Amino acid sequence: MSDATVNSPILVADVGGTNLNLALLIPEGPGFRLLRKARFRTQEERSLTEPILRFLAVDPFLRPGRACLAGAGPVVDGRIRLTNAPWDIDGPDLEGALGIPVKVVNDFIALSAGTLHLDLADPAQAIPLPHVDGSLPEPAPGGLVLVVGAGTGLGVGFLVTSPSGIRAFPSEGGHIGLPVYDEDSLALWRHLAEGLPGPPGAELAVSGPGLGRIFRFLVETRRVACTPEGAAILELSEETRPAAISALAESDPACGRAMVIFVDLYARVCADLCAAFLPSGGLFLAGGIAAKNVDHFLKERRFMARFERNYRDHLDRLARTTPVFLACDYDLSLHGAAHAWSVS
Rank of each mutant, 00 (worst) to 15 (best):
L334M: 09
I176P: 00
K299E: 12
G65M: 11
L315Y: 12
D77L: 04
T152M: 08
A150T: 09
S112W: 01
V343P: 00
D107R: 06
F108C: 13
R81P: 00
A126V: 00
D331S: 05
A225R: 13
T49R: 14
E95S: 14
C226W: 05
D313V: 09
L332W: 05
G201H: 11
V147W: 01
F284L: 04
F32A: 07
G134P: 05
S333R: 08
E95C: 08
L53E: 15
L248E: 03
M304W: 05
I80Y: 08
A249V: 00
A202C: 12
V269R: 11
R216G: 00
L315W: 11
A290S: 15
G78Q: 09
S333G: 11
E238A: 12
P179L: 06
Y266F: 15
R222A: 14
V145A: 04
L234M: 15
L273W: 02
S185D: 11
R222C: 03
E28G: 06
A13P: 11
L129T: 04
E194C: 05
R223E: 02
G336I: 00
D77C: 01
A38F: 00
T115G: 05
V12L: 08
H131P: 08
L196R: 15
G99D: 11
R81M: 07
Y311F: 13
P197W: 03
L35C: 07
K292H: 13
T49P: 00
F284H: 14
W87C: 03
H335D: 00
R309F: 03
E220T: 14
L285G: 05
L265E: 10
L285N: 04
I214Y: 02
L82D: 02
L278S: 12
P128Q: 09
A97N: 05
L326M: 09
L94F: 05
R81Q: 12
L192C: 05
A305C: 02
G134Q: 04
T42K: 04
T240Q: 14
D331A: 03
L332D: 04
V343L: 15
N19W: 08
N21Q: 13
A126G: 07
L188K: 03
D272N: 15
V180Q: 14
D329Q: 13
L332S: 08
A276R: 12
D133F: 06
C68Q: 04
F158G: 03
E95N: 01
L98Y: 10
F325G: 01
G91C: 13
F325W: 14
A275E: 13
L234C: 07
R306A: 15
G31I: 11
P199F: 06
H339A: 11
A258Y: 04
P228C: 06
I245H: 09
P101F: 07
K292A: 15
A202I: 07
L318Y: 00
K299H: 13
A337F: 08
R54H: 14
S185T: 15
I89C: 10
T322H: 01
